[in-house]
Design a protein around this nucleic acid. Sequence first.
DNA 1: TTTTTATTTAGACATTTGTCTAAATATTTA
DNA 2: TAAATATTTAGACAAATGTCTAAATAAAAA
Lengths: 108, 108
Amino acid sequence: MNTLFKAFNDATRREILEMLKDGDMTAGDIADKFNMSKPSISHHLDLLKQADLVVAVKQGQFITYSLNMTVMDEVLAWFVQFKSSVKKEEIALPKVEKPRIRLQINKQ
Amino acid sequence: MNTLFKAFNDATRREILEMLKDGDMTAGDIADKFNMSKPSISHHLDLLKQADLVVAVKQGQFITYSLNMTVMDEVLAWFVQFKSSVKKEEIALPKVEKPRIRLQINKQ
DNA sequence: TTTTTATTTAGACATTTGTCTAAATATTTA
DNA sequence: TAAATATTTAGACAAATGTCTAAATAAAAA
């Protein structure tokens, strides 16, 4: 989980993931979309790869990156599990004194 | 989203969230569960508060922290939305040549 | 009122992170 | 084989982060 949350903790990396939703891209194509050096993007891709969020496939001199939805599902499961295991607090109702006089309305 | 993912990107903070699932706790009680100074825990609580993941209520000299599930739901929605907007790739079927000779089996 | 208790704020410091340029590697083209 | 192209690796550096101790704040107890 640590590596996963680390991967998500950067706007550039989240943008890369969003881009890959529309289809696979080469490292160069990804880098072209950012105002950032290629080595920097390469580093971000490496972190996404370490987190198993993307898969890299070398095709000749190009490297194509694609989403790995399996791991995305794991993160989702983490949050669902978290939610479901939250214990609902007993609502502490304000203590109200018993009325000494009971109003009683009788049907006619 | 940035502040949220930042909040999740630390094991101590995630542990604090897990602890609060079982019920509200004071800052001191939380700190006692960790092998870490109170100011450090206080800082983590501050980041969780900034991300709106927890709510702090002062009661006398104590401060009680509790989960804010609303924001947790937002993160969950982010992932659900992400998943649902992934375009399924057309599976590139390998190109197979048309057979020059068609095998034909006739029913008797 | 003084002391104790609960918590945060301030500031220092080491580690991690994100970015860059230069160089290395690997593949394709001339 | 030499040059061009795609990408990564190495190493430097500034900024962000997590941790600590000491001091400040605020409420409760003596």
